[in-house]
Simulated scan of single mutants.
Amino acid sequence: MDKIGKLASENGVVIFSKSTCCLCYAVQILFRDLGVQPLVHDIDHDPEGKDIEKALARMGCSGPVPAVYIGGKLMGSTNEIMSLHLSGSLVQLLRAQHQTN
């Protein structure tokens, strides 16, 4: 879906989220605690939200939300992001993204 690609490529970190999702909120707080202000796109407030949700699932996001993009690349949902964080790889990805911008 073009909207997903456009948002992901134009912003360093994008979280596709739902306003009522506690896991989405937890991932947002993690990024903010790491000093990153992600673009949060609440698909439940988007008229194309159902289509975005289906497209994210087709792209391989296990969630479908939260779906996290870093540097235009789909990193995954909560499990993938928490695994990256616990291994120390998330901070490295964010630093690399920051250096390219």
Rank of each mutant, 00 (worst) to 15 (best):
C21R: 01
T100P: 13
S9Q: 04
G35D: 08
S83W: 00
L94T: 04
C61I: 01
A55L: 05
L94V: 03
V65R: 07
V68S: 00
I52V: 15
V68W: 04
R32A: 13
M82R: 09
A55C: 12
G63M: 15
H41C: 11
Q37D: 13
N11V: 01
I4D: 03
P66S: 05
E53V: 00
S62I: 06
R58M: 13
G60Y: 00
Q37G: 09
A57H: 13
A96F: 12
I52D: 02
G49T: 00
D33Q: 09
M82L: 08
C22V: 15
G12S: 14
Y69D: 01
I29W: 04
H45Y: 08
Q28M: 02
I43F: 14
V65K: 05
G60N: 08
S87Q: 14
V65I: 15
S89M: 12
K18D: 08
Y25V: 07
C61T: 02
H98Y: 08
K3D: 00
P38G: 11
R32D: 13
G88Q: 09
C21W: 13
D44Q: 06
Q28A: 13
L93M: 06
S87T: 14
D44R: 03
V65Q: 03
L90S: 05
I15T: 03
I4H: 01
L93T: 02
G5S: 11
M82D: 00
L56K: 14
A96W: 13
E48R: 15
H85Q: 09
V65W: 11
E48L: 15
V36S: 09
S89H: 12
H45S: 09
A26N: 12
P66T: 04
L39I: 05
M82G: 00
H45N: 05
C61P: 01
D51R: 06
P47A: 14
V65Y: 10
P66E: 07
G76V: 02
V40C: 03
L34C: 10
L93D: 01
E80A: 13
G88T: 05
V14A: 07
Q97C: 05
Y69Q: 03
L94G: 03
K18A: 13
G49W: 04
G63H: 07
S17V: 01
L90N: 02
V27C: 04
D42A: 14
H85A: 06
S87K: 04
K6M: 02
E10Y: 03
K6P: 09
K54N: 14
R58H: 13
